[in-house]
Computed example of a mutant assay.
Amino acid sequence: MAPFFPNDIFTDPRITHQSATLNGHNYHYLLGVPKEGVFSHTVFLIHGWPDISAGWRFQIPALLELGCRVVCPDLMGYGSTDAPRVPPESLSLYTFKRAADDIEELARQLGAKTIVLGGHDWGGMVVWRTVAWKPQLVTHVFSVCTAYTPPSKNYVSTADIVKKVPQFGYQLHLASPEPEARITSRNDIRQFLKGVYNGRGPSGERVFSPEKGVLFENLPKIGETRLLSEQELEYYTDQYHRNGLHGPFNWYRTREANWRDELELQTTKITIPSLFVQAQRDVVLSPALAAGMEQYVSDLTRREVDATHWALWERPEHINRILREWFTDRVLGGGQSKL
């Protein structure tokens, strides 16, 4: 029996809540299956921060209409997936390698020998790295907002990256103990999410600065966000309040752990059919960061959307059109789109 979720935003009978034990930890995932129960491909959709599996709520139905089965897990530490504390647990539970292993195991449990893999934000980094870790598993890959960057043989700290990319300064703050210690109540989490999802105060105050991180003094001032309905906001707040922010913020503490893992990778090239969708008004993952991808991604399709970082919600019709065209051309072999 599927678990009960307060303020559940899913009314499509083709989409159900499921759970699975993956390499020793419990994961929650959304499972979408075409009405007839017949599908041509299995598509995994991987969310980012601060998001959950529901971040793909507008894309799941579109992919179902293309005849695909869709799997959207909550990543480690998010939503209704386990959120192990570090310490005593190992930070390696929050690495890209661990995410790739868990994706592979969930695909195995679902009987999918190969998958199409899509990601957004941190999910984009997860899918690019999963292609490298699991080349026999992933046949096609796409990323919204997150450009491919190759692994480095030399360790570069987040602090050193921020010197060259100042809008990544927030990562230093989120990796510190302060934000998770100060944003704990349900109301604080709700205000924080509203602010990150483009909500503003009465005088335009923001709760999040790409260069500085969380602006705590503005937390009580933030008004409603236009990106989520009240029901969706309550759903997200419930999911984030379930385990607090420790798990999601651990993803910002894994740079060295990821680097050590990636020293074992055999290739930095992505050769499978790949799609990158740039959000033109993304102030963090800006278009400049996607320059030169072709030297590492040999079969790359580029598309753009007039949106901020939350392109999946702001421009769902545009995103879905891009996915429909790419899936029809590169994944399905042409002429199989039902949209």
Rank of each mutant, 00 (worst) to 15 (best):
H241Q: 08
F276H: 11
T267Q: 11
G292N: 05
T254H: 00
L285R: 05
T225A: 00
L227W: 06
V277P: 00
E224N: 12
A288V: 00
Q239L: 15
G292I: 03
K269L: 13
T267I: 07
T268Q: 14
H246K: 12
S229M: 11
E256T: 11
K269N: 07
E230A: 15
S209K: 12
Q231A: 15
V277S: 00
Q231Y: 01
I222V: 13
N250W: 03
V277Q: 06
M293Q: 12
A279P: 00
R226Q: 10
R226S: 08
R255V: 10
V214Q: 07
L245G: 08
F249T: 12
S274E: 07
R281A: 08
Q266G: 03
T225D: 01
A290E: 01
R260T: 13
T254M: 14
E230I: 14
W259I: 10
H241D: 04
A279Q: 02
L275K: 02
R206L: 14
N258D: 15
E217L: 03
K269W: 09
N243C: 07
E234H: 01
P210I: 04
L215N: 08
I270T: 01
K212D: 08
N218L: 14
T271F: 10
V283G: 02
Y240H: 10
F276M: 10
Y235D: 04
M293H: 10
R206N: 10
P220N: 02
T225Y: 00
V214P: 03
E230K: 15
S203R: 14
Y240Q: 07
L245A: 06
F208R: 09
E264C: 05
E256C: 04
E211P: 00
S203L: 09
Q280A: 12
L263K: 14
E217I: 08
G247T: 08
R253F: 06
Y236L: 14
E230F: 11
G247F: 02
T237M: 01
Q278D: 06
L227M: 09
R226I: 08
Q239E: 14
D238S: 03
L285M: 13
E232A: 04
L227Q: 01
D238C: 09
E205R: 02
L263S: 09
D261P: 09
F208C: 10
R281F: 11
T225I: 01
A290S: 15
R242L: 13
L275Y: 00
E224P: 07
I272M: 15
G292V: 01
E262V: 08
R206V: 14
A290C: 04
F208H: 10
R260W: 05
L227F: 07
P210M: 04
H241C: 07
V214W: 02
I270C: 10
L263F: 06
R281S: 09
H241G: 04
E205H: 01
L289S: 06
P210K: 04
L263V: 02
G244C: 11
F276A: 01
I270W: 03
